Amino acid sequence: MTLDDLRVFVAVCEAENLSAVARDMSCSQSAVSQHVKRLEKETGLVLLERRPRGVAATGAGRILYQAAAEGLGGLGTALRRMDDMRRGVGGTVRIATGATTVRHFMAQGVAAFRTRHPEVSLAFETAASSRRCLEAVQTRQADLAWVTIGPSLDGVEQRPSYEMPWVLAVRSDDPLSYRESITLDQLAGISHIELPQHSTSRVHLESRLQHHGVRLVSTASVADWDTALLLAELGLGHAVLPALPGWSYGPGSIVRLVPIPDLPPLAAGWAVRRWDALSPLAIEFAETVLEHLPAR
């Protein structure tokens, strides 16, 4: 049973005439009959019955016709969508992101991509952590994920694309705000605003602090980096954070971002199952976002 057999059989059922199908397909009536006979041989059932003016599907033939027509219709739609994706004129790109990702890393890239491809659907799936984003890629719920680079999952590739230096977010009226930089030892006395539990950034930070024998006393915890910055601005504590693109707190600001040079930068980037298996649209979206990443 081949696709050609099924296509011919569906055409015969709809036309109810072998010679008409032969003319439409520019082949002989005998060739059309051979397609039907192969299906009858494989199923072991009579699929067409002859009538004075053509043919008609038998009960078994109607069952096969309905299934084949639906399957071929779905296959045709899929092939058209894939051709649109290949030519970059349609389709869907599915992206898994964290809560702050689109605002800080993707805004300009998304706008540029939308201008080029207004007909393409962008499906954003918000996940609570980089690990959840990686799981979305691993289980094929997403084509791409923007993640904090860290431990990966089987079958998922990560590409570091942006480095974020660590800073201490502190109100401008706090004594620490006047420092040009701050050492890890000097963090020991802060009122720490904890990063999201089990997040890659928190694991990264706690590992480095533990290595230096520094233990922070926490006064608050948050679900994302923006909230940590806001709490620091309100004077509810100090936040040790990766400096995100778009954060610019200079002279005259309520909050200062004091560099912590002893902490290695945190990296962010794309995660995918296989780059060479991505659709052209997904690749273009990923590259467009990278091209438009804001300068630190």
Rank of each mutant, 00 (worst) to 15 (best):
T101Y: 01
S218W: 03
L257N: 01
H204I: 10
A220S: 09
E40I: 01
M82A: 15
G252E: 07
G246W: 08
G150L: 00
R86C: 14
G59F: 13
A169C: 03
S218Y: 06
R159D: 03
R103V: 12
L230W: 14
D174Q: 00
S177Y: 05
T288S: 02
R215E: 06
E16V: 08
G59K: 10
D24G: 12
E284S: 04
L229A: 05
S161A: 10
F105V: 00
A127K: 15
A271S: 11
S33M: 14
S191W: 13
L234C: 14
F285Y: 08
M25D: 07
P165V: 04
L184V: 07
T183S: 11
R50F: 09
L230K: 14
S181V: 06
T139Q: 07
E49D: 12
T288I: 01
R7M: 09
A188D: 12
L205T: 00
E180A: 13
T100M: 10
E125G: 14
S30H: 02
M85D: 11
W166T: 05
V32K: 00
L153P: 03
E291P: 02
D154F: 12
A67F: 06
H104G: 02
P165A: 04
P261K: 10
L72R: 05
G269I: 10
E40V: 06
E40Y: 00
D24P: 11
S152R: 10
P265W: 00
L176S: 08
I254V: 15
Q186W: 04
E125L: 15
D185F: 12
H204T: 13
L281N: 10
S19D: 11
A31K: 12
T101Q: 03
R62S: 08
F105H: 07
T126G: 08
D262V: 05
A267H: 14
R7S: 11
G71C: 14
L176Y: 06
T219Y: 08
V214M: 09
R132V: 13
G269T: 06
G189Q: 08
A57V: 00
Q66N: 11
L234N: 15
Q158G: 05
V32F: 04
L209T: 05
A127M: 15
G269P: 04
T58I: 01
H104P: 02
V255Q: 04
G252L: 10
P251K: 13
A295G: 13
G98D: 02
G76L: 11
G98A: 04
V255R: 02
D84G: 08
R116L: 14
H192L: 12
R81W: 10
R215I: 06
H212L: 14
L209V: 00
G74R: 15
D224K: 08
P160R: 05
F113N: 03
P294R: 13
E135T: 12
L134P: 02
D83E: 15
E284Y: 06
H198G: 06
T183M: 01
C27P: 07
D143W: 00
V203P: 02
T115C: 07
R215T: 12
D224Y: 07
V214L: 02
I190T: 05
C133I: 08
G74P: 08
A20L: 06
R256W: 09
